[in-house]
Computed example of a mutant assay.
Amino acid sequence: MMTNANLAALSAAGVSVWLDDLSRQLLTSGELAARMSALSVVGVTTNPAIFQSALSDSSAYESALTAAVSADRDVDAVVRELTTADVRDACDVLADTYASTDGVDGRVSLEVDPRLADKTEETVSQAVELRAAVDRPNVMIKIPATAAGLPAITEVIGKGIDVNVTLIFSVDQYRKVAEAYIDGLERAAEAGHDLSTIHSVASVFVSRLDTEVDSRLSGDSELRGQAGLANARLCQEVYDEVFDTSGRFGALADRGARPQRLLWASTGVKDPAYPDTLYVTGLVTHGTVNTMPFATMEAFADHGVLEGDTVRGSAAASHATLEALRAEGVDLDEVFTLLEKQGVDKFVAAWDDLLGTVTARIDEIPSSS
């Protein structure tokens, strides 16, 4: 199967192409492996909404569901068994990529229960449990960048567990995430872990910011559709500062530590007035990840273009964009707070829907007792 030239070029520009989707059907049909070959996919991300969709719409889980129920009819245990099984199998599909990239790519992310977003110790405990349940070196545990999530990130990294930090909306929040990662690396070093084996990504959400900011602008404002890219690009400025080896990170880098890569998330365009590849073409710079819904990946494969590095070197213009938004009356701090709450609430709602879906299907299976 021929590799798509557009996505191959994106990969060559230093952007790792990850797929924001996973299901049992993708795995058993061979479609995930096909996308890796044809579309340069080198990683997979999941979230509660993705699993809710997969389990509610697919008959591919019938045998796995029956097997899980025969072992334990508790809905949380069944959901854990089904989701960790999918992630484990996806890790196996991506194992060669993981090996060939020295652990940088070939990654599959699995999120802690979103109902734990404000509970630090419970988040840490579940991160440890999920890592053990998947039992693959290329799994990443997703932890939200909430106030309770930040110390959990530090503790989990300190245990040598790889983390995908999710639900990052502001530059200030990203800085705290990067510092939490460095704090974790220092703990890991004290505990005797090999720092070169610890990896992390920081997932900055893009399109959701535009959706909320645009709703606060006039219909003819030239600033519509500008906030998401500007905000993400300024996170890159912080990354280049925090992970400069002349600073605090240098001592860790000398011991083999790796920087926490920026991952562009929520890259599916929600406003049809904007180009459907906006958050791919506009966020190209080396050493980053773009996790895309399949529709966005297909769009870039079909008509995506590269315009060079569209991130580094744009800090002044990006600062000016955010200042202009404030001048037009957009309270960005309020927006960031709202988006974090909405993000957690959406994942909790999806998780509740997932539990409801699985509960209904469990009830259809005769009890073995």
Rank of each mutant, 00 (worst) to 15 (best):
V201K: 10
V201R: 12
V201M: 10
V201F: 04
A202W: 06
A202E: 10
A202R: 10
S203P: 00
S203I: 09
V204T: 13
V204K: 00
V206T: 09
S207N: 12
R208E: 13
R208M: 07
R208D: 14
L209H: 02
D210R: 04
D210Q: 06
D210W: 01
T211E: 13
T211L: 10
E212A: 15
E212H: 14
E212Y: 07
V213E: 03
D214F: 02
D214H: 00
D214W: 02
S215N: 13
S215F: 07
R216D: 01
L217V: 09
L217T: 07
S218L: 12
S218K: 14
S218P: 05
S218I: 05
G219V: 06
G219C: 11
D220K: 01
D220I: 07
D220Q: 06
D220L: 04
D220M: 04
D220P: 04
D220V: 10
S221P: 06
S221V: 08
E222M: 11
E222Y: 07
L223N: 12
L223W: 02
L223Y: 02
R224W: 05
R224D: 10
G225M: 09
Q226P: 04
A227V: 03
G228T: 09
L229R: 06
A230V: 06
A230E: 10
A230I: 07
A230Y: 03
A232G: 04
A232I: 10
A232F: 03
R233F: 08
L234N: 11
L234Y: 09
L234E: 08
C235I: 12
C235L: 08
C235H: 08
Q236N: 13
Q236P: 03
Q236K: 11
E237K: 14
E237M: 13
E237R: 14
V238P: 00
Y239N: 08
Y239W: 11
D240Y: 01
E241I: 08
V242E: 01
V242I: 14
F243R: 05
D244F: 00
D244P: 01
T245W: 00
T245N: 01
S246Y: 06
S246N: 14
G247E: 01
G247I: 09
G247A: 04
R248F: 01
R248C: 09
F249I: 12
G250E: 03
G250S: 06
G250T: 12
G250N: 04
A251C: 09
A251M: 08
A251G: 15
L252G: 13
A253W: 00
A253Y: 00
D254C: 08
R255A: 15
